[in-house]
C-alpha cells in the first residue's frame, strides 16, 4: 500500500513539475504581456502543487527524501509523469492545447481527490482544485478563441489537437497502482474520470470549431510507471537538475 501510494503521489507531483517546467519556459517570450503573466501564474500554481505532492511522497516513502531530492536527484526512468506534459512547447497553440487537455483532467482528478480517504491528500487536492478550476477556465477560453479565430489560428489549433490528443488518452490508462489505490479509496480510478473528460473536451472542441481526431494511445509502456518516456524528458532534466548535479549537496 505504501509503495503504491508513493507511486501514485509521484504521478501527481511529476505531472505538475514537468508541465510547470515547460510552461515556465514561456516567461519573457509570450505573444502578449497579459498572456506572459498568466502563463507564469499557471506555472507557479503547478510548481506549488509539485512541492506539496512530492513532499508528501517523500514522507510516505519514509527514506527521508525531500521534495527537492525527488525533483532534482531522480533520473528519467524514475519519473512518473505522462508523456503529454514533457512534449515541447511548440507554438503557443500547441502549448495552450496541451495545457487545456491536461487542465481538464487535472480538475476532474483533483475534485475526486478531495474525497480521498487520506486526509492529507484531500487537503492538498482542495487547494489545488481551486487553482485547476481557474486554469481550465483560462486554457479552455483560449482554445475556443483560437480555434474559432482566424483561418490561421484555426489550422494551428487543429494541428496541435491532432498531435496531442493521442497523448491525452494516456491519462486514462490504468495499472495495478491505480487499482490498489482506487480500492483503498485513496485515489480515483482514472477510468472513472474518462466519460466526464470526454464530454467536457467534446463541448470545448465544438465551441472551438475543432474536430476530434480518431485516436488512441498506442504505446504499451506508459510514463505512469516509467516504462516509457519521450526523449524530451532527459533534456528537461539536464537543465532542471544541472546545479544540483554539478555541485552536489550544497545549500542554495
Amino acid at each position: 500500500m505504501a509503495d503504491a501510494k508513493f507511486e501514485a503521489l509521484l504521478r501527481l507531483g511529476d505531472n505538475a513539475l514537468i508541465l510547470g517546467h515547460r510552461v515556465s519556459e514561456w516567461c519573457g517570450h509570450a505573444p502578449v504581456l497579459e498572456e506572459d503573466i498568466a502563463l507564469a501564474n499557471t506555472a507557479l500554481d503547478l510548481l506549488g502543487q509539485t512541492n506539496l505532492w512530492l513532499e508528501y511522497a517523500g514522507e510516505v516513502e519514509g527514506k527521508g527524501r525531500s521534495a527537492d531530492d525527488l525533483a532534482f536527484l531522480r533520473d528519467a526512468w524514475d519519473f512518473r509523469n505522462v508523456l503529454l506534459v514533457e512534449l515541447p512547447n511548440g507554438d503557443f497553440g500547441q502549448t495552450i492545447m496541451r495545457q487545456y487537455l491536461f487542465d481538464q483532467f487535472n480538475l476532474l482528478n483533483l475534485r475526486a481527490l478531495t474525497e480521498s480517504k487520506d486526509t492529507r491528500i484531500a487537503e492538498i487536492a482542495e487547494k489545488a482544485a481551486k487553482e485547476a478550476a481557474y486554469h481550465v477556465e483560462r486554457s479552455r477560453g483560449t482554445v475556443v478563441g483560437l480555434g474559432d479565430g482566424t483561418q490561421e489560428s484555426h489550422a494551428r489549433m487543429q494541428e496541435a489537437l491532432n498531435l496531442l490528443y493521442p497523448y491525452a488518452l494516456e491519462l486514462f490508462i490504468t495499472d495495478e497502482v491505480d487499482d490498489e489505490m482506487a480500492e483503498a479509496g485513496v485515489f480515483p480510478d482514472p477510468k472513472s474520470l474518462e466519460d466526464a473528460y470526454l464530454v467536457a473536451v467534446a463541448a470545448t472542441l465544438q465551441e472551438a470549431t475543432l474536430d476530434l481526431p480518431e485516436a488512441h494511445f498506442g504505446h504499451r509502456g506508459s510514463g505512469k510507471d516509467g516504462r516509457m518516456h519521450t526523449e524530451h524528458l532527459g533534456h528537461i532534466l539536464t537543465q532542471m537538475q544541472w546545479l544540483q548535479r554539478a555541485y552536489p549537496g550544497q545549500t542554495w
Partner: peptide
C-alpha cells in the same frame, strides 16, 4: 489598465495581472 480582446478575457487578465 490592461489589454484584452473581450470582456471575459479582460477579467481573467485582470485576475492574473492585478491580484497576484
Amino acid at each position: 489598465s490592461l489589454h484584452a480582446p473581450d470582456a471575459e478575457t479582460a477579467i481573467m487578465n485582470a485576475r492574473d495581472v492585478y491580484t497576484r
